[in-house]
Amino acid sequence: MQASMSCRPKWGICKMNQDLIQYLLRLGDSALIQGQRLCEWCGRAPALEEELALMNVGLDLVGQARNWLEYAAELANDGRDADHLAFRRDERAYRNLLLVEQPNGDFAVTVLKQFFYDAWHLAVLEGLTHSSDSRLQGIAAKAVKEVTYHLRRSSEWVERLGDGTEESHQRMLAAIPQLWRFTVELSDSDAVEQRLHAAGLIGDPQQIAAAWQQQVERTFDSATLPLPAPACHFYLSGRQGLHSEHLGLLLAEMQFLPRAYPDATW
């Protein structure tokens, strides 16, 4: 079924399109914010090879974000383009996962955050490669190859640090409680996602949650890291634009130039 088939333009944007726009913002914003966080390592990574890898993963994610946000902008058709969505929306209008807006911390926190995100991201994209919407399918089929590679890298790092030296193991142990409660968003879904799944547009949220859980269990096991009990809900929700205090500061830096010089081109 095509998303546009149930639309009646006379009555404005149909419900399904509104759901899809929300979902595209979630995908695009998460990729953009994760990419922006990775770019904060530019010039500060522990080794040159790591710097190149972090920047390249970030670049992939920013590129994917552009593809999602361009599609969202076309569907919304309200005069805003992808750049406008990225640089002119305030914190409350952002729909990214809480996980990706968390500060980078040390290399252990950065690696673990990337791993939690990659494991979720891959499962989401694999579901989207079977979407009934050809545009979603096309963007996802491209991104899924890149993210398979990202997960390969981040899961290997979790194993290397977890099952590494005494210090690297301790650092990973310290990173887990800093990030764990934000993983609650990686294994739940809301009515928007359930409707989109029922319409054949996105993958099954339950399968995504199960795939995430399995990947984390497997990697934590070989990394000799203890798996905490499933995270519980708390008062924030990235899906609803209720963010932690870190997102505003990130946006202030990311959006400064286009907001201060709205006509700048480069």
Partner: peptide
């Protein structure tokens, strides 16, 4: 393999 990413995303080192 030295690094999964080289000078660009399409290459490994």
């Amino acid at each position: 393999l030295l690094s999964q990413f080289g000078s660009t995303a399409c290459k490994a080192l």
